[in-house]
């Protein structure tokens, strides 16, 4: 089985995350990591090839720092990785991202068909959770998203997904696209051998030209939305009291004073 797993480099959740003046996620001088939820995607892909044989290729789109994300995937055990980058990609929206990832998946199919594309459930920077759906649409693959359980047998992929009020089990023949939630598995820590292998691995870099994509169709100018304003929210001016026997009553009084018991 040949699996492509899409991984994104995002600002560390614990870092001081911020936006630039023109409303883009500030990636300069803010620590970045592999999107945690993509570790579950990598894990899911690795388990499938460990069971059935084959290879896992990590794919990312992003600037130079984003190589860290695929390095981490290599440390976890993916067989090879590629990164798409181009100056024209700055400010791309989810539609452009999906179009680029789709073109890269097609190119990865040049040396043999891709059976499965695996993604995380959401990137923890924008938390949009839409790239997997758009990618499935671009690649015209059956979409089995938000898998809390995943299995492949006899060329059929089966997932269980928990939506707001229902649980579904879906099935489709390969090739297909799956996104996995953090319920799907417990991601492994890189082993020493993986860390060594990742150090030596070459990560090819593809440009838009390599993918035959038009720069005018991606980037900030082609985005379907534009950020008008990004502003940090003023910190809340909270009150903290210590319970000395009447903490519950004081809590109730606070709610009453603020019209929250109406």
């Amino acid at each position: 089985m040949k699996i492509v797993v899409c991984v994104k480099h995002v600002p560390d959740l614990q870092a001081d995350r911020r936006f630039t003046d023109d409303g883009r996620v500030d990636r300069e001088g803010v620590d970045g990591t592999l999107n945690e939820l993509d570790e579950n995607a990598v894990e899911a892909a690795l388990r499938l090839v460990e069971a059935a044989g084959g290879e896992v290729i990590a794919l990312t789109m992003g600037p130079d720092d984003a190589e860290d994300a695929v390095r981490r995937a290599l440390q976890m055990g993916v067989h090879r990785a590629v990164r798409v980058t181009d100056d024209a990609l700055a400010g791309s929206d989810a539609f452009a991202t999906a179009a680029v990832l789709a073109a890269a998946v097609r190119r990865l199919a040049d040396d043999g068909p891709v059976d499965l594309v695996v993604t995380g459930m959401a990137a923890l920077d924008g938390l949009m959770s839409v790239v997997p759906t758009l990618l499935a649409a671009h690649l015209d693959l059956p979409q089995l998203t938000l898998a809390a359980e995943l299995s492949v047998a006899d060329g059929v992929v089966r997932v269980r997904r928990d939506l707001d009020h229902v649980t579904e089990v879906l099935e489709a023949p390969l090739p297909a696209l799956v996104s996995v939630t953090d319920q799907a598995n417990e991601a492994r820590y890189p082993a020493f051998a993986g860390i060594m292998a990742a150090r030596k691995a070459q990560v090819p870099v593809w440009s838009l030209a390599d993918l035959g994509l038009d720069p005018a169709a991606v980037g900030g100018a082609a985005a379907r939305t534009r950020v008008l304003e990004a502003s940090p929210r003023p910190p809340r001016e909270g009150v903290v009291i210590t319970d000395t026997g009447d903490g519950g009553r004081r809590l109730a009084a606070f709610l009453a004073e603020n019209g929250l018991l109406a």
Binding site: R236, V240, I241, D243, G247, G248, R250, A256
Partner: peptide, 28 residues
């Protein structure tokens, strides 16, 4: 959580919550 709470009580929830619930019912 106290860094972004509007109102915080440092205390045991097993004490504070029942008292708050009773007081809310009384106020209502």
């Amino acid at each position: 959580i106290f860094e972004f709470a509007d109102f915080g009580v440092v205390g045991d929830l097993a004490e504070v919550l029942p008292q708050a619930a009773a007081e809310i019912r009384r106020l209502r």
